[in-house]
Design a binder for these strands. Structure first.
Lengths: 221, 221
DNA sequence: ATTATCTATAGATCTATAGATAATGC
DNA sequence: ATTATCTATAGATCTATAGATAATGC
C-alpha cells in the first residue's frame, strides 16, 4: 500500500545501517583501547554482531578503522559547527573550535585517543575537524582578521599544536587543561596574524557547554 | 696472552652487537615501508639473520621497533649536535637543528617516514631530537634570546609544527621544501618570543651541509 | 666449555568463506 | 524471493621454542 519514497530508508536499509554503525562504534572503542591489531572476531563481538557480517560491510580491519575515524571526527566537527553557527567573527569561531577541541582530551578520552592515534593522517585529509579549521582560517583571512601567507603552512602549525597539546594533556593528568589549551590557542592566533590584545581577549570568551550526546542511539523511540 | 681490558668489547660481544644492529636497521626499513605488522621472519630475513636470533635480542616486534626508533633519532640528534657545537647563540643552534630536521624529509625519506609514523610518541619521550630541542630552548631562554612561559607548551608547538610540516612535505612533493621549512622555523622562533627581525635573519643563515653517512658499516676495515 | 646463531616445526591464532538461518519485501 | 545476518571451520599465517650447528674463550 504505502509506497516508500526513494529517500526514506527501508527497514532493511536501517537494519544494515545499524550493523554498520555498531561495527564502527566498536572499532572506535578498540582503537581507543590501543588494540590496533585486534582480531576481527574481537571487534565483531564488541559490536555484538556475527563475525561474518563484518565482511558484508568492510573488506579489512584497516578499511573499518578508516571509516570509524572519519565518522568520529565528522560527528564532532558537525557539533562544533553548530556551536559556532551564531558567531559572526570567523576568528572567534576558529578560536572557539580550537579551544573546544582541547577540552575534548579530558572530557572524552576515547575520542582523544582516536585523534592521537591517527592524528597526522587526519591532518592531511581534508575532512572533519581539519576541513573546518581550514575553512575558518580562510574566512578569517578574507574578513581581515588573520593574515596568513600560505594556508597549508598555517594548518601545519594549527594541527601540530592541537595534536601535541592533546598528547601533553594525556601524559600530564595534573596539568590545568583549560588554561593550557587557552594559552596555546592564544599563541596560535598570534601566529595567524592577530594582534596580542585581540588574541588574548578572544581566548577568554566564555565557551558554550559541551553536552554529552548519546553517539549512536541503539533503540529509536 | 693479551688480557682484554674490561671496556674493550670482545669478539663475541662485537658479533652480538652486529646482529642486534642488523635487526634494528632492518626494522627501520620495515617501518619506513609502512609494514608495521611485518612477521618477525620478514624482519630477520631483511637483516640476513636467523629467525631464532631475534629472540636472543628482543621479546617482541614492538620492543624491537621501539629500540630501532630511538636508535635512529639518537643518531641524528648526535649529528645535529656536532653541527651546532661551534655556535654560541643557543637560538641559532635551535633554529639550525629545526631547519635541518625539515630538510631530512626530502633527503632521507626512510627516517622521515619513521618520524611521521611514531612522531607523537617520540615527542613525549625525553630523548633524541626532542631532548635536544628542549635543551636548546632552555639555553636560549636563559641567554635572554627566547621568552617562554612554559617549556612543555613551547615544545608542543615546536614538535607539532615539525611533524605536520614533515607530513606536508611528503604529501606535496612539488612544494619548495627549504623555503617552507625556513618559513615555519621563522614563525616558530617568533612564537618563542623572538622579535621579527631576529627570527627572519636567523633563518637565513647558511646551513652546514648534511653529508650522508653510512649508518651501520657492515665490514670494519 | 660457553655462548651465539641457525634450521625446522608444533601449536596457537586469525582470516575469509561456505552454508544455514532469520528478517524483510511484495 | 531476496537480502542480511549468523555459526562453524578449512586453510593460511605467525609466534616462540627445541635442538642442532657454529664461533669464541681459555
Amino acid at each position: 500500500m504505502a509506497q516508500r519514497s526513494t529517500d526514506a530508508p527501508s527497514r532493511q536499509e536501517r537494519r544494515k545501517a545499524r550493523t554498520r554503525a555498531a561495527l564502527m562504534q566498536a572499532a572506535q572503542s578498540v582503537i581507543a583501547a590501543g588494540r590496533l591489531n585486534a582480531p576481527i572476531l574481537e571487534i565483531t563481538q564488541a559490536a555484538d554482531v556475527g563475525m561474518g557480517s563484518f565482511y558484508n560491510h568492510f573488506d579489512s580491519r584497516e578499511q573499518l578503522f578508516q571509516a570509524a575515524l572519519e565518522d568520529a571526527l565528522e560527528r564532532h566537527a558537525i557539533r562544533f559547527d553548530e556551536l559556532s553557527a551564531g558567531l559572526d567573527d570567523p576568528a572567534h569561531a576558529f578560536a572557539q573550535s580550537f579551544r573546544l577541541t582541547g577540552r575534548i582530551h579530558r572530557r572524552e578520552p576515547a575520542l582523544s585517543q582516536l585523534m592521537l592515534t591517527y592524528g597526522l593522517a587526519m591532518a592531511a585529509v581534508d575532512k572533519g575537524l581539519a576541513r573546518r579549521a581550514r575553512r575558518d582560517i580562510d574566512h578569517a583571512v578574507r574578513a581581515g582578521r588573520f593574515s596568513v601567507r600560505d594556508t597549508d603552512l598555517a594548518m601545519v602549525m594549527v594541527v601540530g599544536a592541537g595534536l601535541c597539546l592533546g598528547r601533553l594533556l594525556r601524559d600530564q593528568p595534573e596539568r590545568d587543561s583549560d588554561a593550557s589549551t587557552d594559552h596555546v590557542a592564544q599563541v596560535v592566533l598570534r601566529m595567524l596574524g592577530m594582534p596580542d590584545n585581540d588574541a588574548s581577549e578572544i581566548c577568554q570568551y566564555p565557551l558554550p557547554c559541551l553536552v554529552d550526546r548519546t553517539p549512536h542511539p541503539e533503540g529509536h523511540s
